[in-house]
Design a protein around this nucleic acid. Structure first.
Lengths: 108, 108
DNA sequence: TTAATAATTCAAGTATTATTGAATTATGGA
DNA sequence: TCCATAATTCAATAATACTTGAATTATTAA
């Protein structure tokens, strides 16, 4: 994972609404959630939510697919795992360190 | 780890200079590095570096100790591990998921 | 085709963050 | 004590990010 993508992902998660949205989608798992459901659950105005969903999408942390008149957003677990991996690489000059972090969720 | 501290830590890491500084300190391990050494290694102006070191310190990701006329900054591995743990909790409704992430470095 | 629903984009104003030179604090050595 | 070194804080400017109402796009049902 390249530095700019890491920064983009960290920036995306470093904001209250986006962190809550992302975590809600992580909890939701493969079912995902629509913007409407997220807005109801987290009490966020549609325009504001849309702005933050775009930020998370552009960072590659979530992805929307259309189903009829709904969009369904899902967390991208591979991207999440890659981000964690980057942050844990190279520590203490590579010696005596734990392996790169295990995948967050093996089944999702 | 509480939400506001997570956001503060993510914000601290979501910036090119700070991400590089933090990673340099993670690599340096227990020896740590002085602002002078970091500035030389990463080519950052003293005032700018000082601003970013403060951000990382206030987020709890690094900590300075004075030795003579030098300050030595070191990464806080416990804080780092707590942050990774937060991001990996509660996924997929707790079912069939990997354990919370192992510590980044068992020896530092 | 018209109306209703789901969600987005646009544009504006507001707020937060980053950079830099100059001034300041702290320490150690001559 | 006085000077040099190490690093920080201050203040001003520049750049980014956040929020919101109004307008727009896309889809489905009547």
């Amino acid at each position: 994972m390249e530095e700019q993508k890491v920064i983009r992902s960290l920036s995306a998660l470093a904001q209250e609404i986006r962190l809550r949205v992302f975590r809600a989608l992580v909890v939701a798992g493969p079912d995902g959630m629509t913007p409407g459901a997220l807005g109801d659950a987290l009490d966020i105005a549609p325009t504001t939510l849309s702005f933050h969903l775009k930020e998370l999408s552009q960072a590659g942390l979530i992805e929307p697919t259309r189903e009829g008149r709904h969009l369904i957003y899902r967390a991208d677990y591979a991207q999440m795992n890659a981000l964690l991996g980057y942050l844990t690489e190279n520590c203490c000059r590579g010696a005596s360190c734990a392996e790169p972090v295990a995948p967050v969720c093996k089944t999702c």
